[in-house]
Each structure stands twice: as C-alpha cells, then as structure tokens.
C-alpha cells in the first residue's frame, strides 16, 4: 500500500488560516490501512483543528466525509453536490487524492493533510517499512524476494558496498543492509553463484526518470 504520515497540525492550520468552513475528506484506501487518513483520523483532525480555533476564539465549521477511494472519479463524483459549499477542503488521502479532487472540482481549493512517503507494509502494528520503489521493471525474483532498488540506500544492483557493517547500512545502524540479507539468503540456499554474474546497468525509463507514467489497458478502456 501507499504509506503516508500526517503533516504537523501547525502546517495544516496555516493552510486554512483564513477559512471558516471546511470539509475534511478521508479515503478508505491505503491511508485507512496505514491509519493516517481514514474515518478515525478524519475525526481526530477535525477535533484538533476545532480545538485550535476555539483557543483563538474563532469558530470553525468542519464537516467530515470519508469516501471509498479518492483516486477514482466514480467515488469523487459523490461529493459533487456539496463540494463548493466549503471555503476549502482538506484531503487526508495520499498525494493522488487532492490532485484528482482538484481536477474534478476546479473551483475548490484542496489542501493535502498528509505527506505521502512510500510503497510498503506494516512489519508490526504501528510500524511501516518501504518495500517497493515503483521502478516499473520488477527484479525481485533475481534477489530472492528482496528488492535492492527500493531497499539499498544506493539502489546498487551489484552490492553490497563497502559500507555494509554487521548487517546494517552505512547510513544508519537502524537500517538493515538489504545486500547483506540477499547474500546470506543466497548462501543459505546454496545459490551464491547467482550473485557472481554481473547485473548490467538498469533501464530507468520505466521508472520516474522516463517522465510521468501512464498505464493503458486497451481491453478496459472505453
């Protein structure tokens, strides 16, 4: 899923400083699963903003809605009737949400309440880790299910570099060296030979480096 963190309250308050009636929009997709932008978090943000405004002696009207997905025009359509009743809308979805909303409702101002960080999963309750860099050409099968593009600080394809120490990356003793894990897994499985062959330079055209990406599925496109 896409993993995000909520922005600091001060930053969100600055965004809406001259607005008195807002809508906070949650998303039931990834941000609900990573506990940052679902029904519950929309309530918490709503209450927090109202507390801040009350403290200033100013009122703030906040409505809340959490839709199925903000990355889908079909669901965005649901707020059509009321979206322009607000001074501003705060989206708690990933970076896709406020953009889809802005495109659908050009008259309205949409603010992002979260910082979208990475593609990952929860390794334990409350802890999420990056697993995928969305490079567009998956190679994890060559590395026994461990992705060096996303998980090596230098995205090395022929690691580990000389900074690997006791299983950790040179950037921090808290970041595991993925190449250490790859080498150990290959050794355990008696397939070290896999790592002796040279992996040539990666084609980054399928990644962000090739420009904004698009996926067209002819059998589905109307």
């Amino acid at each position: 899923m896409i993993v995000a963190d909520r922005k600091p309250l001060s930053e969100i308050l600055d965004m809406i400083t001259d607005r008195d009636k807002i809508l906070i929009m949650g998303c039931k997709g990834c941000v609900t699963v990573c506990n940052v932008g679902g029904v519950k978090e929309v309530q918490i943000l709503s209450s927090s903003l109202k507390i801040a405004r009350k403290k200033e002696g100013r009122s703030l009207t906040v409505d809340q809605i959490t839709i199925e997905r903000q990355c889908d025009p079909e669901y965005i359509e649901q707020v059509k009737a009321t979206i322009n009743d607000y001074d501003a809308v705060i989206s708690m979805a990933c970076g896709v949400g406020p953009q889809f909303l802005s495109e659908a409702y050009p008259q309205q101002k949409f603010f992002p309440a979260v910082n979208t960080k990475f593609f990952g999963g929860a390794t334990s309750h409350g802890i999420w880790e990056e697993r995928c860099a969305g490079c567009g050409t998956c190679v994890i099968h060559y590395f026994d299910g461990l992705c060096p593009v996303a998980r090596c600080s230098k995205s090395l394809m022929n690691g580990p570099c000389g900074g690997s120490s006791k299983g950790y990356c040179e950037i921090s003793k808290e970041v595991p060296c993925i190449w250490d894990m790859i080498v150990k897994k290959k050794m355990e499985q008696g397939r070290l030979d896999d790592l002796l062959c040279f992996t040539p330079a990666k084609n980054w055209r399928t990644s962000r480096d090739g420009g904004p990406r698009k996926s067209v599925r002819e059998e589905l496109a109307i």
Binding site: K40, Q43, I44, S47, S48, K50, I51, K54
Partner: peptide, 11 residues
C-alpha cells in the same frame, strides 16, 4: 477510550 474521546472532551 479512544483519542477522539479525549479530544472531544477538551473541544
């Protein structure tokens, strides 16, 4: 008791 209960009380 959830975060929202405590915040609402203050609010």
């Amino acid at each position: 008791v959830d975060i929202i209960h405590l915040l609402r009380a203050i609010e």
